[in-house]
């Protein structure tokens, strides 16, 4: 599998996917909506200016909830669209492995979300202008946010491979992402901690992106958090590949 063509094929597939994003309105709609929503939440809900603090906490705290909807919207077309159009038949009969195609598509979508995330840079410039923020923390928060988006994307890519309906894929992905968020949401852990043994509460909350995101967003770059994101992504991408390999129809 890891021959000279592995990276080359992934790169070619990524390039085609990227052309697909920017050749259709999907990319522009996504970026504009993402920027508008982050702006709205940061300034009107979190009251960025009134808070009087030179940090981006009020900006990053909304990311799990925004990504929960926006990332599955990007991911839903990854495979469902190929199946609906029938182009999957050409794609998977090219001299490329399923692994290469799955990774190429995933990485292209992830980079695309990365671009959308990077376009929030004026906010960083604003806090630098207004005060003396800890840039290390901001960098970590961006990294955490990017990893979380990748995790949600891997979920959405997997659900997209299950069905040729983008709507079904979207709903499944949102539900799974919601679970991944809620498992660490304070009200939910509070319900559990009333009766469940402490190890169970910890176990449930450790499956949550929220608790891992929270610690990275505080500026603590823990190997366990990185491992969590990467292993969820690896697992979902693996399942994605297995689903595609065992598909019985177009």
């Amino acid at each position: 599998m890891l021959n000279g063509n592995f990276l080359r094929n992934i790169r070619i597939i990524m390039k085609r996917e990227f052309a697909g994003y920017f050749g259709s309105p999907v990319a522009y709609v996504f970026i504009v909506i993402f920027l508008l929503l982050t702006g709205f939440f940061t300034f009107y809900i979190s009251n960025f200016f009134e808070a009087g603090q030179a940090d981006l906490k009020g900006f990053f705290q909304w990311h799990p909830w925004l990504f929960m909807f926006l990332v599955p919207a990007i991911a839903m077309r990854l495979w469902a669209e190929e199946r609906r159009l029938g182009t999957i038949e050409l794609l998977l009969t090219l001299p490329v492995t399923v692994t290469e195609v799955v990774l190429g598509k995933f990485l292209a979508a992830w980079c695309f979300i990365g671009i959308a995330l990077a376009l929030t840079f004026p906010l960083v410039l604003t806090v630098i202008y207004l005060g003396n923020p800890d840039l290390g923390v901001i960098f970590c928060a961006y990294l955490g946010s990017f990893l979380m988006a990748g995790t949600f994307l891997s979920v959405g890519s997997m659900t997209s491979a299950i069905t040729r309906s983008q709507v079904v894929s979207f709903i499944l992905a949102v539900v799974i992402c919601l679970f991944l968020i809620l498992a660490g949401f304070a009200p939910v852990t509070a319900v559990l901690s009333g009766w469940a043994p402490i190890w169970l509460v910890d176990l449930v909350s450790s499956t949550s992106v929220l608790s891992h995101f929270a610690s990275i967003a505080r500026g603590v770059l823990d190997v366990r958090d990185l491992l969590y994101y990467l292993s969820v992504m690896a697992f979902m991408i693996f399942v994605n590949g297995v689903i595609l390999q065992n598909r019985e129809s177009a």
Partner: peptide, 28 residues
């Protein structure tokens, strides 16, 4: 192998030459 599937599926948003460029690249 060269394969033409039923209903001739092609990515609708791509231009003809870009699509063929992609196919040529992936074919080495």
């Amino acid at each position: 192998i060269g394969y033409l599937p039923e209903n001739a599926p092609v990515y609708p948003d791509m231009t003809v030459s870009r699509y063929l460029d992609f196919c040529a690249e992936i074919r080495g």
